[in-house]
Structure formats: structure tokens, C-alpha cells
């Protein structure tokens, strides 16, 4: 074990760019969700506490994932640009590809927890500021754990995208490639309106909103089309929560394994190739 994880953590919590994406951008979305996209008072809109609770649950489920996806964009670009250094230390340092990945993940997990905490507490605090009602989720620890799980899946997606671009030597694809995490985030976001059916179990991150809904509201959510379900306007197939959790865990394992293989295969991207 080297001190890489310690310095990675120090890097993540002092890197202004990472903080801007991970916290500043998240806060922007939370403020937009609560102060712009939601009515000014639950009574005006005919909302009761249950509806505020539903609104907050949706904020965790979809806003949280979208914000984490935004943070993952910066992560891909960072991995891509440090490919030279990563390559070198796996060859001539104390870290082989697998241990580099493990320590990088260990160092990053703290910032994922931090970002999840920011989403959780800012949704709570700003909802209270907006409606004067403190609505605590049914299982706050579960909500936090689900947000961290979303962050972990997105971390591996971002890592694998960067490494895949390096292995394929698609050196000019970084700006487009790094946006793939955000695209995945928006695909998951689309489940507010549509249901992927059983295919949701096969899409990374797609079952996580169901887990968040369950821990927020304490009721079994559907497999998709959450607005339809929340407004009671239609019937949607219920989700199998065990399968949702299993799918997410399997995706984490698969993406981590892919990262090890790609790190062993990948070279590095030089400044000349980046055309900087």
C-alpha cells in the first residue's frame, strides 16, 4: 500500500475544478429544482406533506444522479490527461494496474461520499427554506448509501471511458467521450417519463432511482415512468428491489474489472497527440 490514496483524497478535496463540478454544479441543480421547477408553496399547488416528500424523493433520485454524472465528466478528462503519469507509475512504481485502481478508488470514495452528502443535506435544507417543512426520508442512511452507489457506478463509467479512449487511441475523442457519463445520467433521468421495463436491470445506473425512491418513501416503486406512478395516472410494473441492487453491484464489479484490463492494455496520451 502506497500513500497514493491519501494524496488522491487530498487532491480531490482541494482541486477547485473538481469542487466546482462536484459541489458548485450540484448546488445549481438543487436550487433550480426547488426554487424554479417546483411551486412556491405546497398549499398553492394543492400539495400535502406527502407530495413534498415525493418531490424530494425525485430530487434525490434524478437530480442526484444527474449531478453525479456532471462530476464524472471532469473525472474522465482528468484521468485522460494524467494517462502518462498513471502509465509510468504502474510500470516503475509500487503500484501495479490493479493496486493503482484500488487506491485511486479508495481516494475518490471520500469525495463521492462528500458529494452525496452535499446533495442530501442541500435538498433537505433548501426544501425546508422553500416550504417550511422538514421532510426526512424514511431511511436517510439508505438514501445516502444509494447516492454513494450511484457515484461509485459513475466513477467506474468515467474511468472506463477514459481508459477505453486511450486504448483505442481516440485521442481527440476526450471532449465527446467524457460527456458519455452525462448521457448515461440523462438516459436514467428519462425514466421519470418512460419505463425501460425489464431492460432497466441491464442498463448501468438505471435501477438506482428505484432504490432511492424506496428508501425515500418507504414504498415499492415501479420499474420506470415514475411521474406516472407518483401522480397515480397509470399503472406501471413494480420493480424487484433485490434484482435492482444485484444489478448495480454486478455493474460495479464488471466496470472495475474492465478498468483493470484497460489499464494493463492502455498506453498513454502524449501532449502531441492531444494536439494541445
Amino acid at each position: 500500500m502506497s500513500r497514493y490514496a491519501y494524496y488522491k483524497l487530498k487532491d480531490m478535496i482541494t482541486n477547485v475544478e473538481a469542487l466546482a463540478w462536484g459541489i458548485g454544479f450540484i448546488e445549481f441543480w438543487v436550487i433550480m429544482w426547488i426554487f424554479v421547477f417546483s411551486p412556491s408553496s405546497p398549499q398553492e399547488a394543492g400539495w400535502g406533506e406527502a407530495v413534498v416528500k415525493g418531490n424530494i424523493a425525485m430530487a434525490y433520485s434524478f437530480l442526484g444522479i444527474l449531478s453525479m454524472s456532471s462530476a464524472a465528466v471532469g473525472l474522465t478528462a482528468g484521468i485522460y490527461r494524467s494517462s502518462f503519469a498513471r502509465r509510468f507509475i504502474t510500470k516503475f512504481g509500487r503500484l501495479g494496474p490493479a493496486s493503482l485502481i484500488a487506491e485511486d478508488f479508495a481516494g475518490s470514495i471520500a469525495s463521492i461520499v462528500l458529494f452525496a452528502g452535499v446533495i442530501f443535506f442541500s435538498v433537505e435544507a433548501l426544501s425546508y427554506a422553500r416550504w417550511g417543512t422538514l421532510v426526512v426520508p424514511e431511511n436517510p442512511v439508505g438514501v445516502l448509501a444509494d447516492l454513494v452507489l450511484a457515484g461509485i457506478i459513475l466513477y467506474w463509467i468515467a474511468y472506463d471511458i477514459a481508459m477505453a479512449l486511450i486504448v483505442a487511441r481516440r485521442v481527440r475523442g476526450v471532449s465527446g467521450g467524457s460527456m458519455l457519463s452525462l448521457i448515461v445520467g440523462f438516459i436514467v433521468y428519462a425514466q421519470l417519463w418512460v419505463s425501460f421495463g425489464k431492460a432497466a436491470y441491464a442498463v448501468p445506473l438505471a435501477p438506482v432511482p428505484a432504490l432511492l425512491m424506496y428508501h425515500s418513501l418507504g414504498t415499492y416503486p415501479p420499474i420506470g415512468a415514475y411521474l406516472l406512478w407518483l401522480t397515480g395516472a397509470g399503472k406501471v410494473e413494480a420493480i424487484d428491489l433485490r434484482l435492482a441492487a444485484l444489478s448495480s453491484i454486478l455493474w460495479v464489479a464488471a466496470l472495475a474489472l474492465i478498468a483493470v484490463v484497460l489499464t494493463r492494455k492502455g498506453g498513454a496520451v502524449s501532449v502531441e497527440e492531444l494536439g494541445m
Binding site: Y7, K8, K10, D11, T14, N15, V16, E17, A18, R81, S82, F84, A85, R86, F88, I89, A268, S270, V271
Partner: peptide, 11 residues
Amino acid sequence: NLPEVYNLFFL
């Protein structure tokens, strides 16, 4: 001493 090698962190 290739400078690219020393580009891991924002420290």
C-alpha cells in the same frame, strides 16, 4: 525527468 510523468495530482 519527463514532465508528463509528474502530472498525477492537483497538488
